[in-house]
Amino acid sequence: MEQKVRFEQEYIVNASISVIYPMLSTPSGLSDWFADDVNINGKTYTFFWDGAEQIAELIAKRTNVFARFKWIEDEDPKAYFEFKLTTDELTNEVALVITDFAEKEEVEDAKELWDTQVDKLKHNLGI
């Protein structure tokens, strides 16, 4: 198995962190923009898309800062996806930094998919 490569995407989301964070860490928030539906059982999140499902474990979080998930079926032990919120000290702009892993030839497709998903997030936030 080829090891996946890590990549980051940063998006300006100028909205209150206390409004954005639940969109990144709760089943109802994630089902608004990331998946069709999301169920939670402890730290296990089940994501549904067009009848298919994927299961991820919430492996780390800090309220209003970040949420990190690992796909259960991902064989790469280093791979995860993370939503992190940052605030620029000078401008007070809030940014969402998404960290993900993909096979080298799939990184551009993965970035485009995140662009689409974050556009949906911004739309749902009214920004």
Rank of each mutant, 00 (worst) to 15 (best):
M1D: 05
M1P: 02
E2T: 09
Q3G: 01
K4Q: 15
K4C: 00
K4S: 07
V5A: 07
V5D: 12
V5K: 14
R6W: 02
R6P: 01
R6D: 06
F7C: 06
F7I: 04
E8T: 11
E8Y: 03
E8H: 09
E8A: 00
Q9N: 14
Y11L: 08
Y11A: 08
I12R: 11
V13M: 10
A15E: 15
A15K: 13
A15T: 10
A15H: 13
I17C: 04
I17F: 06
S18C: 05
S18L: 08
S18Y: 10
I20M: 10
I20C: 11
I20Q: 07
P22H: 03
L24V: 06
L24T: 05
T26N: 04
S28G: 00
S28E: 14
G29V: 12
L30A: 03
L30T: 02
W33G: 02
F34L: 15
F34V: 04
F34R: 00
A35M: 10
A35Q: 02
N39M: 11
N39R: 14
N39H: 11
K43H: 11
K43M: 08
Y45R: 08
Y45T: 08
F47E: 01
F47A: 03
F47Q: 02
F47M: 10
F47C: 02
F48T: 09
W49K: 05
W49H: 09
W49L: 10
W49N: 10
W49Q: 06
G51C: 09
G51H: 03
A52T: 14
A52H: 14
E53N: 12
E53G: 04
E53Y: 12
E53F: 15
E57I: 15
E57V: 15
L58Q: 03
A60S: 15
A60P: 01
K61Q: 15
K61W: 05
T63S: 09
V65T: 13
F66E: 07
A67C: 10
A67N: 07
A67L: 09
R68V: 10
R68S: 13
K70E: 12
W71M: 15
W71R: 05
E73L: 13
E73W: 10
E75Q: 14
E75S: 12
D76L: 00
K78H: 10
A79V: 05
A79C: 09
Y80R: 01
E82P: 01
F83W: 10
F83N: 04
F83H: 11
K84M: 11
T86R: 09
T87P: 00
T87A: 09
E89Y: 03
L90N: 13
L90K: 13
N92I: 01
N92Q: 13
N92G: 00
E93H: 15
E93R: 06
V94E: 02
V94N: 06
L96I: 05
V97P: 02
V97G: 01
F101R: 05
F101K: 07
F101A: 03
F101P: 07
E103D: 12
E106W: 09
E106H: 14
V107F: 08
V107T: 11
V107L: 07
E108M: 09
E112M: 11
W114H: 07
W114V: 09
D115N: 14
D115S: 03
T116E: 12
T116R: 01
V118C: 02
D119C: 00
K120P: 00
K120R: 06
H123Y: 13
N124K: 14
L125I: 11
L125P: 03
G126Y: 03
